[in-house]
């Protein structure tokens, strides 16, 4: 198990390096840099000399390989550099926003699991009956409705029906849980629906598959009460693929919040990302891409390890 873990962790390194290299190259192909946005926006009237000086200060005049090595050295020593737009450390820029994004993602995950597991199970048990059809339509719709549109509809509903709009400034949960929830529950619902749909479908199909396996048939043949069978045997085995999808989708969720944060005006990672991209703040974009890639890769790892824990066959393979 330990050797397996070590091998998996070692495999993360080339993947992340590949992501870093690719990001670096791609960003440099895009025309424009942060300096012009910074100095020429809003009627700024600067000489070319000043533009060049600012580029030099940000290290944009160095040869690309040198810039890449500098960045890599920084990454290894956990120094993400300073935002080219604000000059503040990138870690700080991300730090003040990540709590919100993470909370929304976590809440969405929680909501979805709460809905998805019972829904998926019922749908599997009553397969091909009207219950199954209703659940399937509900879940397929979840995959179809764009979360940003759902968000807009939610806001519209709150405003026109209840004449109320969620608070616009972020209050940390520990300061005022109610205020915090009043703001963040809506985006969590909007993205949670899709998430729930994905998980519910996974739960349904894995339960159907497990139900077919011999030991379940044996158990049923023995006349054990069916629900008990489901609870004891099927659920446990069906949870495995569900865990996978929850883990993997969580990483996607963080990325998917880019759009939803726009709709709900949330000061999270997604908005930071969109702003960084619009200004070509290379250092910040690179850091955010690496962060998301790292979350994704780590989630993969956790899922694999969980597999090992939950399913002895994988562990011993």
């Amino acid at each position: 198990m330990l050797r397996y873990l070590a091998r998996r962790v070692a495999l993360m390194v080339p993947t992340l390096f590949g992501v870093a290299l690719l990001t670096f190259i791609m960003l440099r192909v895009v025309p424009g840099d942060v300096v012009e946005v910074k100095l020429r926006a809003d009627g700024g009237y600067v000489t070319t000399e000043i533009l060049e000086r600012e580029r030099a200060r940000l290290g944009l005049d160095k040869p690309l390989p040198v810039q890449f090595v500098d960045w890599m050295t920084g990454l290894v020593t956990l120094d993400l550099g300073n935002s080219m737009w604000t000059g503040r450390p990138v870690a700080e820029e991300i730090g003040v926003r990540i709590g919100l994004t993470f909370q929304v993602a976590l809440m969405a995950a929680f909501i979805s699991v709460l809905i998805a597991i019972p829904l998926g199970t019922i749908s599997a048990l009553y397969r091909d009956t009207w219950v199954d059809y209703v659940v399937r339509i509900f879940t397929i719709a979840g995959l179809a409705v764009p979360s940003f549109w759902l968000g807009m509809l939610l806001l519209l509903l709150l405003l026109t029906v209840f004449h109320w709009s969620p608070p616009v400034t972020y209050t940390p949960f520990y300061e005022n849980p109610l205020q915090n929830m009043a703001q963040l529950i809506w985006p969590a619902l909007a993205v949670g629906y899709r998430y729930a749909a994905v998980v519910a479908r996974m739960v349904r199909s894995s339960i159907i598959e497990v139900m077919r396996e011999d030991y379940i048939r044996t158990a049923r043949a023995k006349g054990v009460f069916e629900r008990l069978v489901v609870a004891r045997h099927a659920m446990r085995n069906a949870l495995l693929p569900a865990v996978t999808v929850i883990g993997l989708e969580f990483a996607f969720l963080l990325g998917g919040l880019v759009v939803t944060e726009q709709v709900f005006n949330l000061n999270g990672i997604g908005r930071l990302f969109v702003e960084a991209v619009s200004r070509n703040d290379f250092v910040l974009i690179q850091a955010l891409v690496m962060l998301l890639a790292a979350v994704f890769v780590t989630m993969n790892l956790i899922v694999d390890v969980l597999y090992g824990v939950l399913d002895p066959r994988v562990r011993n393979a």
């Binding site: 590949g18 990001t23 960003l27 192909v29 990325g255 880019v258 891409v289 890769v297």
Partner: peptide, 22 residues
């Protein structure tokens, strides 16, 4: 499979943005 892993680890929006720009 390594290349697949690398591309998979990218946030889709970033990929899309850069491809559009390039």
């Amino acid at each position: 499979m390594r290349l697949v892993d690398i591309v998979l680890s990218f946030p889709i929006i970033v990929l899309a943005l850069v491809v559009v720009a390039v």
